[in-house]
Design a protein around this nucleic acid. Structure first.
Lengths: 162, 162
DNA sequence: GACAATACGGATATATTTTATCCGTATTAC
DNA sequence: GTAATACGGATAAAATATATCCGTATTGTC
């Protein structure tokens, strides 16, 4: 089990969009070049973000994407779920129902005990992702990335932002 | 992203094995029938548990599997990792390295800030799974399952246990 | 108004992973 | 000796992830 690479792509793109001056748009083409990703396929991930209302898009030349909310109001979980879906990472197929000892018409009162544990862990995972926002990420990146690279990247992006 | 169904199968099988009187073995065939699963493929999951030293096997008629440790000493995480592998659920492909603004020979000092958040969430997920043992599961099941079904299933299993 | 660049959705193709089956071997109970 | 088992390897089928292509509508620029 591993998250799609589109999740990674979407997070990096959101980090860039979060660093953009408010109101500016950045195109799929620029985001793909910046990260060395296939433009057409990255586009699918960005469309996912758009459908989840995390970003807004505009058409035409100088078109592209910008965040639809403030960076502090978008969590890692929002982005992950926009791309990966909201389904839990453990699917209970209720195989206990196949137990040949079960009387006819036996009906379970609640979800399987195993599923409850797995879903509990899933929720712990989501809680962590929910607790970190794009604003938090920006703060970390500013500490992580050498100022020179931060500045040159910012210039590269602004030159392409509509 | 979703866990393999083999994880679910392995957990249910471990629950049964944990309920077995000490020293008794139960075959793949019996476990497959009990849960309505394809015997040959379930066998692969059980072999994973065996390689992880969570269960022991014995050959020949009346052969099968039993737990290699006490139920209290086997966690959900042990079982999940035995089947699903120990790799983290988020793979960092370090796409930041593709940034065209990077100077030649630039070298990152540590893991990507995005990966750190994702790995932190992954660890929270594992911590929850690590905190629940097969003994805990047995306790829950005894409360969940009607005594009659618990007893009939136990008899069904014992009739087939070598 | 013509043109170019864009987002978007649908269709298709390729690669990888998951699910499943089959078979031969060694081991063990009877 | 026979039958039942675990085990590993090979293979196949199905599902999913990855990737590309194309047509449409929209919008900024000339």
């Amino acid at each position: 089990m591993i998250l799609k690479s589109q999740v990674e792509w979407a997070l990096h793109c959101c980090a860039i969009l979060a660093g953009l001056p408010s109101g500016r748009y950045l195109s799929t083409k620029a985001l793909a070049e910046l990260h060395g990703l296939p433009k057409e396929y990255l586009s699918k991930a960005l469309q996912g973000l758009s459908q989840a209302k995390l970003v807004e898009s505009t058409l035409g030349p100088s078109g592209g994407y910008r965040l639809a909310l403030r960076p502090a109001d978008i969590s890692f979980l929002d982005v992950v779920e926009a791309v990966e879906g909201k389904e839990r990472t453990f699917a209970c197929n209720n195989i206990r129902a196949n137990n040949p000892c079960r009387p006819e018409g036996f009906c379970d009162t609640g979800p399987c005990a195993i599923a409850r544990v797995m879903w509990d862990a899933d929720e712990a995972w989501r809680a962590r992702l929910r607790a970190v926002s794009l604003a938090d990420l920006l703060g970390t990146l500013e500490k992580d990335i050498p100022p020179a690279l931060l500045r040159s990247t910012s210039e590269w992006v602004l030159k392409r932002a509509g």
